[in-house]
Amino acid sequence: MTGKNRKAVPDLTVDLGRGLVLKNPVMTASGTFGYGEEASAYLDLSELGAVVVKGISEEPRRGNPPPRVVETPAGMLNSIGLQNVGVKAFLAEKLPFLLDRGATVVVNVLGSTVEEYLRVTERLSTAPVIGGIEVNISCPNVKEGGVQFGMCPDMAAGLVASLRSATDLHLMVKLSPNSGDIPGMARAVEEAGADSVSLINTITGMDIDIRTRRPALGGVFGGLSGPAIRPVALRMVYEAFGAVRIPVVGIGGIADPEHAVKFIIAGSLAVQVGTAFFLDPLTPLRVIKGIEEYLSREGMLSLADARGSLVVGDPG
């Protein structure tokens, strides 16, 4: 901070492949940013790397009964239950607003069958202004007895291969931490044609009200997010980075620039901010600023210099 050796401003641009270029590595995480309308009261959407919108299905979904959120130590559980407006209303009512505000838009897609994912993806592919698709594979496959796509590499790969043949949009596949084998899963979706992987989605958990002896959440189980999951997410990002050549997008408990930098050192080319956005709507902008300051301080000219720079073993 002494001002000696003023460094050049580092280049924060990120090219995730297949046309998805971000002006900086910080996106908002799906389900924590709505469709950008409320958020735009606080920040300029065009300053974000990208806006990842709430997961979109073919038809609108009402979501789970309340209570839908409960706080846990350094985190929270949610059972929102994929409430969303459906792809038709998204394209007609939500996307125009985001584009008008200059946002790079990544649409999180969900479905109960491969066919539903396909139909949503095809609809979105008719809107050429979308930056990319994030495939939420943490959804139960009703044709396979409700097993989540993201729990089984074959099922995930089959889904991604179908989507690959249906769209030229960037396909970011969002991995679930509930699958024990992150490297295997990452490789399976890479081979099936994914352009990038993002991780982690929430970790399944639950809580109980001991007075009523009822689950704390209307949906019984919920997804754990926030600082509590950061170490797990960091480990999984590091594993994924070692397993695939496509870009890795780090997610999980990022609330400060230092957290984002850790994910970048572990191998992320970009990051997403989720739960921390609830605490302060300017968190993503603070993270962008802090990453830039870090690179500058370390004399790095671009993100590529820091990405995957983890030193393991004897520093000698």
């Binding site: 389900g31 924590t32 940013f33 709505g34 309308e37 409320e38 958020a39 009261a41 606080y42 709430k54 979501g63 309340p66 209570p67 839908r68 959120v69 409960v70 929270m76 949610n78 929102i80 409430q83 739960t275 956005f277 609830f278 709507p281």
Partner: peptide, 13 residues
Amino acid sequence: RMACGFGVCAGCA
């Protein structure tokens, strides 16, 4: 129960 308070999480339905 609220997580965000400003409309982005759908937690307070």
